[in-house]
Amino acid sequence: MLYRMFRFGFRLLFRLVYRWEIRGAEHVPSEGAVVVCCNHINNLDPPLLGSALERPIRFMAKEELFKIPVLSFLIRRFGAFPVNRGAADKRAVKQALTFLKQGEVLGVFPEGTRSRTGELGAGHTGAAFIALKGKAQVVPAAVIGPYRPFRSVRIVFGPPLDLTGYRDQKWTSQSLRKVTDRIMNEIGTLRAENHSK
């Protein structure tokens, strides 16, 4: 109930203030485990991504945010769970895999942090590992800004990636890097194809 209330409020914000556009939301499977991989340009990216979908979406958020009482309450109600970005956080990975096992949607920003320039940065391999280990479909997405009042913000979803060739093999740092690079290339393509349309 609270999730739907927050989503409704953010939808009003994005519709009235940022004139948002949503493209390709039909590419997100209506059921089953899904990892949505998106670029990251603003702190509003998680609620933008979550508000664009009908299915609830979970997010990893840096654990420092959960030490702020009111903010912690809000982001937990909007599906976030903590991750220690300074180390390989096995607890956060386990939590993410639990959500995927339950057939939920996980939102991940493979860059790991916001882009200072708005350009697409390099992706970390954690998202690829979680998606493969969690047997989830991977949907690339792109946020196209800027976040300025009464300027259009666009969120674009692409078709799920076919990762069949990687699911049945032993995962190595090289294979995870290949999957990550493919995800990032798809995000880059979405940005380029939808930037000025």
Score class of each variant (00 low, 15 high):
L2T: 09
Y3A: 09
R4A: 14
R4E: 12
R4P: 00
M5P: 00
F6I: 12
F6P: 00
R7A: 13
F8M: 13
F10D: 06
R11M: 11
R11V: 01
L13V: 15
L13T: 07
F14G: 03
L16T: 13
L16G: 02
Y18L: 08
R19F: 09
R19M: 04
W20P: 05
W20A: 04
I22Q: 04
R23E: 11
R23F: 09
R23H: 12
G24A: 05
G24T: 08
H27Q: 10
V28F: 05
E31R: 14
G32V: 07
V35R: 00
V35T: 04
V35D: 01
V35Y: 03
V36P: 02
C37L: 11
C38K: 00
H40T: 01
H40S: 03
I41R: 02
D45G: 01
L48G: 02
L49N: 00
G50Q: 04
S51V: 07
S51E: 05
S51R: 05
A52K: 01
R55E: 06
F59S: 06
F59C: 08
A61I: 03
K62M: 10
K62D: 11
K62P: 04
E63K: 15
L65E: 04
F66M: 09
P69Q: 10
P69M: 07
L71N: 02
I75W: 01
R77M: 12
F78Q: 14
F78A: 13
F78Y: 15
P82G: 09
A87E: 15
D89V: 09
R91Q: 15
V93G: 03
V93T: 13
K94L: 12
Q95Y: 07
Q95K: 14
A96Y: 03
A96D: 04
T98P: 00
F99V: 03
L100M: 08
Q102C: 02
Q102T: 01
G103M: 03
V105H: 06
L106I: 07
E111D: 07
T113H: 10
T113N: 11
R114V: 08
R114M: 11
R116G: 11
R116K: 14
T117L: 06
G118H: 09
E119A: 15
A122R: 15
T125S: 14
G126C: 03
A128Y: 02
F129E: 09
F129C: 01
I130A: 09
I130E: 04
A131V: 08
L132Q: 00
K133G: 04
G134Y: 00
A136N: 02
Q137I: 00
V138L: 11
V139Q: 01
V139F: 05
V139E: 02
Y147L: 08
F150M: 08
R151K: 15
I155N: 01
I155P: 00
F157S: 01
G158M: 06
G158C: 11
P159L: 06
P160M: 09
P160C: 10
L161G: 10
D162C: 07
L163E: 08
L163W: 08
T164R: 14
T164N: 07
G165E: 14
Y166G: 07
Y166Q: 11
Y166H: 13
R167A: 14
D168K: 13
K170Q: 14
K170F: 09
T172S: 15
Q174A: 14
S175W: 01
S175H: 08
V179E: 02
V179D: 01
R182I: 10
R182T: 14
M184H: 07
N185M: 11
E186D: 12
G188L: 05
G188M: 06
T189Q: 15
E193N: 14
E193H: 12
E193C: 10
S196Q: 13
K197I: 11
